[in-house]
């Protein structure tokens, strides 16, 4: 009985801590988003038709994390269709953001604007940063 209580306590604490850390990361991420991303991708993540892609419900945002981490690190100048639409503006490489900031802002983007996807961790960002281009 004692053992069971302990296990339940442990699980609950882990879940709560995880939720807490997700919330903290999202809050920090929102601040980064407002400072760095909002002017092109807009407050609602809707982007600008034909110029800057939307961040809501696109495979780029919801799919493989490493893809979107790579774009934030190295920018985007290729003309690639996103959900069948082309976007004209170049995106800058964000050398101004550290691993924690990138993890936070991408966690925020992947869990906002109607999105629901796993958090991005500092380790995820580090892995993409150290991978050769």
């Amino acid at each position: 009985m004692k053992k069971t209580v302990l296990v339940v306590f442990f699980i609950t604490t882990t879940v709560l801590l995880k939720a807490q850390s997700l919330k903290t990361s999202m809050d920090r991420g929102q601040k980064v988003y407002e400072k760095v991303c909002l002017s092109c991708h807009m407050a609602d993540g809707g982007g600008v038709p034909h110029l800057n892609p939307p961040l809501s419900q696109t495979s780029y945002v919801l799919g493989d994390k490493s893809k979107i981490i790579y774009i934030v690190l190295h920018g985007m100048t290729d003309r690639i269709p996103i959900e069948d639409e082309y976007y004209s503006n170049n995106m800058a490489a964000h050398t101004d953001l550290n691993d924690q900031q990138i993890a936070d802002v991408l966690t925020y983007v992947r869990n906002n604007f109607g999105n629901k996807a796993s958090a991005v961790t500092v380790a995820d960002v580090k892995a993409v940063r150290t991978k050769k281009k």
Partner: peptide, 14 residues
Amino acid sequence: YANACQEKDRTLHS
């Protein structure tokens, strides 16, 4: 094909 003919287009302090 640029915003302001920076060394890196649309980039902070470029």
